[in-house]
Design a protein around this nucleic acid. Structure first.
Lengths: 304, 304
DNA sequence: TTGAAAGCGGTACCAC
DNA sequence: GTGGTACCGCTTTCAA
């Protein structure tokens, strides 16, 4: 009998089962852009965790555009995704508000929400900023600029807030000229913000992610500044190959894969009404010191 | 009436429709690893094309492991994917053979098949090799080594064949010591193969992809060789950031997004029995000359 | 223990 | 046109 099943290659239809059970064992995931190297490891982690528990993952790129977000959401719900992993970083909460109102299960990934009831998995952004400023201040930097991500994103806002707090805690100036907001987490935005920031003559720049700092690096080169001799540079995320560029980038490592795993696990627990230890997970970032940071050329660095 | 539909937020169930119609408007896509930067643009292109035509894309990582491949395939077919985009590069044709036998629609992406009936979208690998060897020979290199990808992959085999052909066409030696096969398209494999190859004292190395050449670069550094003064290096794919590493990598650009778009379009045409202009698309690669290639230090480069 | 029947939410067909 | 009905393949329930 079993042999017959084998031979006939019977494949139960997940579609029919989904219709009957009203559960498809599918998670939908909203990502701004799979092409941004920050996201694939998160997706990978989520997919692994999902698959281990018998769920599939369906991806949608949103380009951080509200209309694409709405469209993707409609698609995922028509396909009866059981729950959603939301990794789009814009705070634009109307989407999330609608889900919350309808009690549709979701977990926020790499972003928070003003509504504390929303489950989320994030990195401790303030701690990331604190580690970076601590490192730079330790080297003797005082005029430290910050290229923030869009302040409409939680990562952007929190890292900027962390920057201010860490600067103040050390009695360092938080000149507004030392702050530039990038309009997107992309290299060209980092270049524009970096060029602006350079006019304030910082000895170091902390950018909210690696793509931004790469843009700042290009701006610095055009301004004939040597990195790290004339300008120290720090990013966040530790995306592939930043250890191989010239100079190797000092950055903050974020446990992306783990973030994806935890988020998927949490969502599935939610779906299966399993007990959840924490609704809000804060992951620890790790400073990775490489060649793009050094003692500032002006002051012979008094160590911390 | 329409207003009522709006207010009640009626969402037709794609699941129910799929059951009734026996078509889900879903494409399954098999990728070795979404974390390899070569694939996201392909996926993105496929997803865009699919969405434009009302199809969804469901991804599966296979890790190039046969058992993961089989499992993913089962999942995708249970979910009633209408067709498959196969971007796993192993030639291991048993999977494909089964699909072919059952007349299940699929398109091969970035790989070919010995069975000419299988539709495919690839880059012209031999032409890529020809362009690279032409460039290196033009600079005056004669002892050009090749780190091939796994020869069980079509990309690996074709680029290696292209290398041999291009070398022979110029009367250059194809010493077997100048050839090393990497066991995977990953940096550590490139390092191992590069270290082996260096013993044959090549003045240039052409690796079958950028990850491999990055490994070779590390091996060269450990051997105290300067790039490009002592050793020229060329990769394939032009993945993000290789233009920023030290030295900026000379490589071959592959139109990944277009590859994904074309493959999805072709698959959908197949599904909808639309006329197909070509069952086999060969995309043109473009040599991108940057800083990792130069005239060999020994011979004061006689141009081609 | 085993088997028959209903129903999930759509589409398609066929009367009317 | 418009409305009723069967059916896609699975799970679940209920009866024999």
């Amino acid at each position: 009998m079993l042999a017959a099943v084998e031979r006939l290659e019977y494949r139960p239809s997940a579609i029919a089962r989904g219709l009957r059970l009203q559960r498809t064992h599918t998670l939908g995931m909203l990502v701004p852009d799979i092409t941004n190297p920050f996201f694939p490891p998160i997706i990978r982690g989520a997919e692994e965790a999902a698959r281990e528990r018998g769920y599939e993952l369906v991806l949608c790129n949103t380009d951080d555009a509200p209309e694409r977000e709405t469209a993707s959401l409609r698609v995922l719900r028509e396909r009866q995704a059981d729950g959603l992993l939301i990794a789009t970083s814009r705070m634009a909460d109307t989407t999330v508000a609608a889900l919350r109102r309808e009690r549709f299960p979701f977990v926020l990934v790499n972003r928070g929400s003003s509504v504390t009831a929303d489950p989320s998995v994030e990195v401790d952004n303030e701690r990331a900023s604190e580690a970076v400023i601590g490192h730079l201040a330790g080297l003797g930097h005082r005029r430290i600029g910050h290229i923030s991500g869009p302040l409409s994103t939680t990562t952007g806002a929190e890292r900027a807030a962390g920057y201010r707090a860490a600067m103040k805690a050390r009695g360092l100036p938080v000149d507004e000229a030392l702050l530039a907001e990038a309009d997107a987490y992309a290299e060209p935005s980092g270049y524009a913000a970096g060029a602006r920031l350079l006019r304030a003559r910082p000895s170091a720049i902390f950018a909210a992610n690696d793509l931004l700092v790469l843009g700042a690096l290009r701006a610095a080169r055009e301004a004939k500044l040597r990195v790290p001799e004339d300008l120290s540079l720090v990013g966040v995320n530790d995306i592939p190959l930043v250890d191989l560029i010239d100079p190797p980038l000092t950055t903050v490592r974020v446990p992306q894969r783990e973030m994806g795993r935890i988020a998927a696990d949490m969502l599935i627990a939610l779906l299966e009404s399993a007990p959840i230890s924490r609704r809000h997970v804060l992951l620890d970032p790790t400073l990775v010191v490489r060649g793009s940071t050094a003692v500032p050329s002006g002051a012979a660095g008094s160590a911390a």
